[in-house]
Amino acid sequence: MQKTKFPAVVVTFILCFAFWLLLTWSFAVQELIAGAVVSLAVALFTARFFIHEKAFWLCNPVKLFSGLFFWVCVFPVELVKANVDMARRCFSGCRNINPGIVKVPVDLKSDYGQAALANAITLTPGTITMEVAEEEGQTYYYIHWIDVTKPSGKEAGDAIKGTLEKGLRRVWE
């Protein structure tokens, strides 16, 4: 268990307070003070679970904008493509499927990057990340794929997560 660090507390506090403002949508002094107290308490207790690496990496504008670009432009396109594909399979009677679990190498190093990639893969219909394994310094995902067209390894990896990983690498590395 790592110790609570000051920058982590600050960032968690800012996030909590922003959510408080969004949800209450009032700027009376009493509300602001109550929100600040609650946010500070929450931040003190949860910062060490919430932030593991550099706290202020979002202050780097390149990373911030490549992150925004990924979640607003790259990912929705992949999402819509996969959704249309899946919907077509469902409407045509669920016959043309070929499910299997492939093992795919992942090159992202950071914890957050890996978590974001696993979640992005799971959110695209047709692929679910089932397990993460590390062998000799290389991370592997076991991915359940509804339509296995490529053999395990690099090729399947490019087909499943090529675009996603490229976008995420700019954010976290």
Binding site: P99, L123, G126, I128
Partner: peptide, 17 residues
């Protein structure tokens, strides 16, 4: 209509996204 558990989960992702 999907034949097994994992394929059914895949289809249900469509609803959640």
């Amino acid at each position: 209509k999907m034949p097994d558990t994992y394929s059914r989960m895949q289809a249900s992702t469509c609803i959640a996204t």
